[in-house]
Amino acid sequence: MATRVETPSTASSSTKKQSSNGMKTFRTYFGVAIVVVWGLLPFYWMVVTAFRDVDYTYSTNPLPSNITLENFRAAFSTEAGNQFARALGNSLIIGVATTVFAMIVGVFAAYALARLNFRGKFIVLGIILGASMFPGVALVTPLFQLFTNIGWIDTYQALIIPNISFVLPLTIYTLTAFFREMPWELEESARIDGCTKGQAFRMVILPLAAPGLFTTAILAFIASWNEFLLASLLSDDTVRPVTVEIARFQGALPKVEPYTTVMAAGTIVTIPLIIMVLLFQRRIVAGLTAGGVKG
């Protein structure tokens, strides 16, 4: 058995290396901490204010103080004319419908763009990219005019259809990138085993693309859930989504913004998104295809 004799020079270089590694780890964690604090601080402040008594709305105490659940009760109360619960339901309907339609169309479009060879394929991708870059505010007036003419103002379809057009480019782009990375051999093997192109897509490609599909669906849902601009003009009392409802929250006193109630409503609104990510986080993890192909 060979014994390693540590000379002073090797010991010093090993200590130096350890110290350098320690510094590197510290820098990494410090950077991560800054990003996390930067990202979570507004949410922390929202939650702290949501639980704070209305008399202490402007308190600058960073720790939770004067805790009460009254703000959450006030958020759901309809006494001041707020319809928060209905708005939550509306947002859910609009978000789910948008996500489902966008995913159905997006999956086929992305598969075609990633796997099939046809003339002008990249021109289509460019057009989709252009459509996603088109400023939403430029569409507000024409859409308002159009939907007024056909009597669609304050209907679900008036919010769902424009939302689909905003979410679809995101869906197609994300799924195209995902399908492109999947090994061709899997599909070819399925074809050799007797599958048609459609069967290979349905039985082999789609199950393997599940993490990408879930990730894209979550992104589409979040984009639709957070939409404000079009909803603020195209919706009225019946189908108003939660983003618009919070913006027009009325407090008990006239001309006094009910900040604590708004924060409570904001906290409630973020809960479905957190639940979705927690439920599907295992599906989101990439690498389902790892080991699917030999060599």
Partner: peptide
Amino acid sequence: REHLETLLGLVGFFTLA
């Protein structure tokens, strides 16, 4: 060629608009 084709679609979209 693929990049230019994508750019062509993008510019074409805004040209049409």
